[in-house]
């Protein structure tokens, strides 16, 4: 992408969005970390498993942060159980999206101020038109997180009434959090 060729720059995101074959990777082999929970984490994981029951698709964790993967359609129900159940997750600490190119993963970090424990909920969304139920009725903190995720990743949140751009501005094209969005070369503004 050069300065003299603005058309190529405009077309670049479309090209990058198309599934391209990854070139063979050079460098040292990739090591995958072992996920081991400590004693405290095991306790939380057991509590979480009993709270969610059959909703859990997959679970593991690291240190004292256990995570469970649930179906995207069941996420609202799972979150509600976590909040109202004995585990008492009363704070939505963090919410983020990770772009794995073939899918978008939503990650919710919940925290309990009464029990002082953290759990992580995950849900996989399709890369094409991702959508997941809004958690604004459970935690007010979700409003801005969801708007931000909508800005940067294009995830829709049915149930959140205000989806206007938060960090970006009206008229911004594309979702810059996605891996397919190109980073700048020189541009006149």
């Amino acid at each position: 992408m050069t300065e003299q060729d603005p058309k190529a720059a405009a077309e670049a995101p479309k090209e990058a969005a198309a599934p391209a074959e990854k070139p063979a990777r050079h460098g040292p082999p990739i090591v995958i970390a072992e996920e081991v929970l400590n004693e405290r984490g095991e306790q939380t994981a057991a509590q979480l498993a009993s709270t969610l029951g059959t909703l859990v698709l997959d679970s593991a964790g690291r240190e004292d942060n256990p995570w469970v993967r649930v179906d995207a359609k069941e996420l609202h129900a799972a979150a509600k159980k976590c909040r109202d159940g004995e585990i008492g997750m009363d704070m939505l600490n963090l919410m983020l999206a990770v772009d794995w190119v073939d899918r978008i993963q939503m990650i919710y970090v919940l925290y309990s101020t009464t029990n002082n424990r953290k759990v992580i909920l995950k849900a996989d969304l399709p890369a094409e038109s991702p959508a997941i139920d809004s958690l604004t009725d459970l935690w007010e903190a979700a409003t801005w997180y969801e708007r931000e995720t909508h800005d940067l990743f294009g995830v829709d949140f049915p149930g959140n009434s205000d989806m206007s751009p938060l960090l970006l501005y009206e008229g911004f094209e594309g979702h810059p959090g996605l891996k397919s969005y190109p980073l700048n070369d020189y541009e006149e503004w």
């Binding site: 990739i30 690291r62 963090l94 990770v98 990650i107 970090v109 992580i120």
Partner: peptide
Amino acid sequence: ARPPAGEVFSHSENPRGDLGVYLVSDGT
């Protein structure tokens, strides 16, 4: 730094509150 592939959530107390960092590594 070339960590193994995986993800961690760590947080610490900032003057303004709970500053968390969620780090996802793909091994590079």
